[in-house]
Amino acid sequence: MSALATWDILETSVIGYGKGLNQDSVRTGGTGAATDPVVLAVADGHGSASYPRSDIGARFAAELFAAKGREFGALVRTGRLPWLRDYARYELPEQLVRDWQARVWAHWGRQPGPEGADAPREEVLRLYGSTLVGAVLAPGLFVAWQLGDGDLTVVDPDGRVRLPLAPERAELGDETASLCLPEAWHLVRVHWEPLPEPARAPRLVALSTDGLSKSFASDAGFTEFTSGLYARLASRGLPGIEDDVPRWLEAASRHSGDDTTLALALRAEDGGAGRDGGVAGADPREAWARAPEPARPWGPGAETEAEADPTSDLSDPPSSLSNPGPNLSDPLSERSDPTGGTRNDDEETERP
């Protein structure tokens, strides 16, 4: 099986505007080699008084996926893909959910709350509720998993941006699938993408909690941001954006009100910028500001135009850099799993 190019990794997480605790968690690692697969994981604790330990739940989720992802990457071999595909779709999601729930229950046993150590198991699990998005990049294979809201964004060699795990239908309100739900593994979405030719591998794979996408008035605005982000990465490499990304996420957080986390893997190109940097290019925020809103590259309803957002006149937070986009505003609704769920309402309950 052909080898993938080396990947450069960046992770950033910022606390929600006006909040006292970041309930997101992120874990990354690896280079994409056969013995060192790239593993990316972001988890979003639900927040609010109903989920007082969701920051711990998010940390457990990201840590467990990082470990399971490395194990999964080590299994990738020529001839194993049919078996591995079934493992990715069925067994691994169940293992993740069961292991997360077991770890939460053990934590409660060591540090019970006012409800006592013998509180009903389902009620205890709910206190730690979290979503999860994870990805593995190994030689010849790209696989990703998602439970609940958040986004997996991919930039292909031709520059096309796609969201392969986006649900076909958005949920109403703030409901989202969660690791705390009984048999939550049935709600996990899986993206399976063999890469027999290295040249066809994605150029950028980005995972983010919904604090980022919710700061846009439409899905198309979020897609355009990813396109601009990749343009700058391609010209300057990770050193060219490392100082800017936290400021962009802080600006997004001001508008979404939520913790905002981004983990990305950039494919290192021969002769490209990579970790050693490159020539300076146009700031992606400028292209984002000028570009028209394109149709969504995924799912039904791509022709539906977004309604005007009444919060578009919100001022930008103070920063020595300009906001990553003008009139950054709240979206009309969240995207999340369309079946069953819990409330993910950090922005409604954590503001002063």
Rank of each mutant, 00 (worst) to 15 (best):
A265K: 11
A273Y: 06
G257F: 00
P246K: 13
G274K: 11
A268S: 15
L262C: 11
D270G: 12
R285Q: 11
D259P: 08
L249R: 00
G271M: 11
V279K: 13
A263E: 05
R254M: 08
R247W: 09
R247F: 07
E286C: 04
A280R: 15
R254Y: 08
E286R: 10
T260M: 00
R290L: 13
G277L: 08
D283I: 05
I241M: 09
R275M: 12
T260C: 04
S256Y: 09
R247S: 06
L238S: 01
S235F: 05
G240F: 03
G278S: 09
R247N: 04
D276H: 05
A251W: 02
R285G: 13
A265T: 04
A251L: 07
R275K: 05
E250K: 07
V245T: 11
A273N: 08
A268T: 14
R290G: 03
E269I: 15
G274L: 08
D270Q: 13
G278T: 07
D243A: 11
H255V: 04
G272R: 01
G271H: 08
L249Q: 07
H255R: 11
A252G: 01
D276K: 00
V245L: 15
G278I: 05
D244P: 00
E269M: 14
L249K: 05
G277E: 08
I241W: 04
L264H: 05
L249E: 01
G237Q: 05
L264F: 02
T260S: 01
A263H: 12
A263I: 06
E286K: 02
G274H: 02
A287K: 12
A287M: 08
R236Q: 15
A268V: 13
R275F: 00
D270Y: 10
